[in-house]
């Protein structure tokens, strides 16, 4: 039950993009087409779950030596190395997957949602399995927001806005409206 609660909470109630504001750059940059949104989302889910699986034991190691204040440095370094490694392995061994996800991988190192999830797991004192669920849920939430929003964006693309609002301002205001729709889920928890 806890796992379902965490999953639902991540995807709908506390959506990582629309209510916690993590990964906005990727959200606005890549959400132009549904295809690229799905690709980015898939890459984020994969990296988030793997990064959590790596950083959780790493944190225990840091705790053992009483240097938990190094967690930001250690986590981001491990995530950056892991993403590079995955990219190299994918390029050599899994070409089809690389074609689908490869370009998004370097972008993910600097996606604050990934570091945010791993740090959030520690701050919320989740167990290992709960952390993995949280990572999966956050990744799904990111993908959902991206895919939904790319649909909205394709509709507003050619609309007649005032000159000053064309482009990014209009996109942000559309994001505000999508965010309002997610506020409807607020009462679902507790």
């Amino acid at each position: 039950m806890t796992y379902i609660l965490i999953l639902v909470g991540c995807v709908f109630v506390n959506n990582v993009v629309l209510s916690q504001f993590m990964g906005i750059c990727a959200f606005l940059g890549v959400s132009k087409q549904i295809k690229s949104s799905v690709g980015m989302g898939g890459a984020v889910i994969f990296v988030m779950v793997c990064a959590t699986a790596i950083t959780y034991p790493l944190y225990m190691l840091l705790e053992r030596f009483e240097v938990t204040y190094l967690k930001t440095v250690a986590f981001i370094l491990v995530i950056a190395m892991f993403v590079q490694l995955v990219e190299i392995v994918m390029k050599k061994k899994m070409h089809a997957l690389y074609k689908a996800l490869g370009v998004y991988l370097p972008l993910i190192t600097t996606n604050c949602a990934v570091l945010g999830v791993t740090l959030g797991n520690i701050n919320n004192e989740y167990t290992f399995l709960e952390s993995l669920t949280n990572a999966l849920g956050t990744g799904l939430a990111f993908t959902l927001a991206l895919v939904l929003f790319s649909g909205v964006r394709s509709r507003i693309e050619n609309n007649d806005f005032p000159q000053a609002f064309k482009g990014v301002p209009a996109t942000l205001i559309a994001a505000a409206i999508v965010s309002v729709s997610f506020m409807g889920f607020t009462g679902m928890m507790q």
Binding site: L18, S19, Q20, F21, P162, Q163, A164, F165, V168, P169, A170, T171, L172, I173, A175, A176, I177, S179, V180, M183
Partner: peptide
Amino acid sequence: MPAGGFFVLGCLIALVN
């Protein structure tokens, strides 16, 4: 609320433009 954040930022960017 989160929605207001998106809205205000969009308006500010438009204003600067």
